[in-house]
Design a protein around this nucleic acid. Structure first.
Length: 539
DNA sequence: CCTGTATTGTCCGGTGGAAC
DNA sequence: GTTCCACCGGACAATACAGG
């Protein structure tokens, strides 16, 4: 029978681990189809055996949560369903992407049911590797995009099965071109030895679907670039000082590159760029474009579920909107001020974890806290958040004065602060709620006190940052461009907008995109030779 | 993150042809 | 006959990459 018409049983397993003894089958997806005719796809969540649970990482990867386990079927029931599928596939082989993974689980499954595996496996990964040896990434997403299918999220078993069907529909056509027309020929071809292996020959490069000249002819000027799939999905948006250099850097080299980026590059068929007058404008356009398009391979600057936070005067409560009561901000959900607020409760192990994100023995933390208190507020038994932040501002000013001698100190601190915030946000976003193995960190009380001092500084930096961001909402940025002076005007956070000045609470109608825009503006302005003035001010 | 595997890289002794 | 060295295959280690 022709390979194009040959029916196969397509399969995919989601599991709680890597291999049967440690991991258990969590979900099975299957469907019967041929290259020319896709069939229906089914899937079932499987009851986990005693002693198995859903690891946080697996929840994150699959999107399966505990509540869904309730609808899990028993293995006997699954066996029945699978037998029905085998009948309708006429006992054809199973087609699976990276079959060695599912084989282990299904083998285990059938053995435990007192049966033998009723079908052989054919691996689409192996076929793809042979057909396209130089694709940057051969995982299911990479191959799917390389073959020109639209980008989509692939998490659950059903989506994996559909993806495998689509991949096969293309691979089968390619095989036909090579004269492989039936199962026997396919198996023989897969058995063939790799190649004679030429010595000292070309060092094999990745192959991309993007037209080479298109990227080589990009202008060496600032701008925003977009990576695009064959079907027009925007996969990634980035900015560049030189579009030509930046974009081409994605296509160079083969070793040690981020696998996520390689997966993306396998799927890129086209590029689009927007030239900008300056790196500053490119950065501003980038942040807005990421919000507008929500590209799957961008990580930072995405809106996601991020929200702005405003505090009341005493920092005792927060609101998502700025108002007379909640005037202080904007801040992100995890920030230095939040850490300081955590410092107000009882001094115990739980507080240590909330403030320092590390498990620390209760006694160590308590004596560290005592040191910190004696140094910073000897007269106060229970300082308020406001007082603590004021203390932080005080230290910050002192540090800055010292920094006139030692340039780097403050910058280092700023960088550290940014990293800490990112880390906290990442932890929040991951929401994997995995009860991490809690190894108490071995710190001295002095080190704890020092860390608490840093918390105050971080809060002060956040406080100052909010002021700085607010100042940028209505500002003019001037710099010397190649063709004379250039200026960008911001009003209520929008670039070159012509609206009346905002209210006393300028963030009231603004959101995370405005916050990011102002952040980008500040960080770009710090990098170059820019002058910032209040909007409408005269030089 | 982690785990299993396949591929690639490296080191080694052995071989055989060319030069003396 | 001896020496040199390019080249090969086998054994083992390192690395890359798929999966959840």
């Amino acid at each position: 029978m022709s390979l194009l018409k040959q029916k196969f049983l397509f399969l995919d397993c989601q599991t709680t681990g890597m291999r049967p003894p440690t991991g258990a089958l969590l979900e099975l997806g299957w469907g019967v189809a041929s290259a020319e005719e896709q069939g229906a796809v089914m899937s079932r969540i499987v009851k986990l055996p005693e002693g198995h649970w859903l690891p946080g990482k697996v929840k994150e990867i699959t999107g399966i949560r505990e509540s869904m386990l309730e609808e899990g079927v028993a293995e006997e029931e699954l066996l029945g369903l699978l037998d029905i599928a085998c009948v309708s596939s006429e006992a054809a082989p199973a087609l699976v992407h990276y079959a060695q993974f599912e084989r282990a689980f299904l083998d285990d499954f059938f053995v435990r049911q007192g049966r033998e595996l009723p079908f052989p496996f054919i691996c689409t990964y192996r076929i793809a590797r042979k057909l396209y040896p130089n694709v940057p990434s051969r995982n299911i997403r990479g191959i799917l995009g390389y073959l020109g299918f639209p980008f989509r999220e692939i998490k659950r078993a059903e989506a994996h099965v559909r993806a495998t069907m689509e991949v096969w529909s293309e691979l089968a056509k390619e095989l036909a071109v090579l004269g492989i027309h039936d199962l026997a020929a396919l198996n023989a071809w897969l058995e063939e030895k790799p190649k004679p292996k030429k010595k000292g020959a070309a060092p094999v490069k990745f192959e991309y679907r993007v037209d080479r000249m298109k990227r080589l002819e990009l202008p060496p000027r600032p701008g925003v670039y977009r990576m695009i799939s064959k079907s027009g999905d925007i996969l990634y948006v980035g900015k560049a000082t030189s579009l030509k250099d930046r974009v081409n850097s994605y296509f160079r080299g083969k070793k040690g590159r981020d696998p996520k980026k390689l997966e993306m590059m396998a799927q890129v068929w086209d590029l689009e760029v927007t030239e900008c007058g300056s790196p500053l404008e490119a950065a501003l356009l980038e942040t807005d474009e990421i919000k507008r398009l929500d590209p799957p391979y961008n990580i930072s600057l995405k809106a996601g579920r991020r929200e702005l936070h405003f505090y009341n005067r005493d920092f005792t409560a927060t609101s998502a909107e700025q108002s007379a009561e909640f005037c202080q901000g904007p801040h992100r959900s995890s920030n230095g001020i939040e850490q300081v607020r955590q410092l107000l409760g009882e001094v115990n192990e739980a507080q240590a974890k909330r403030v320092l994100y590390e498990p620390i023995a209760e006694e160590t933390y308590a004596s560290g806290y005592a040191l910190f208190a004696a140094k910073n507020f000897p007269e106060l038994a229970a300082p308020t958040a406001r007082q603590l932040i004021a203390l932080g501002m005080h230290s910050l000013r002192r540090l800055k004065k010292a920094a006139e001698v030692e340039e780097e100190a403050v910058e280092e601190l700023m960088e550290e602060e940014a990293a800490a915030t990112e880390e906290a946000e990442a932890a929040e976003a991951a929401e994997s709620a995995e009860p991490l193995e809690e190894l108490a960190v071995d710190l001295s009380p002095e080190e704890v006190a020092e860390k608490l001092d840093r918390v105050l500084l971080r809060a002060a930096l956040d406080y100052r940052r909010a002021k700085g961001l607010t100042r940028m909402l209505n500002a003019e940025v001037r710099w010397q461009g190649a063709e004379g002076e250039r200026v960008l005007r911001f009003r209520n956070g929008k670039m070159n907008a012509d609206e009346p000045d905002g209210s006393e609470f300028p963030w009231r109608a603004l959101g995370i995109q405005d916050y990011d825009r102002m952040s980008v503006l500040i960080s770009e302005v710090q990098k170059g030779d820019y002058r910032v003035e209040r909007y409408g001010g005269r030089a």
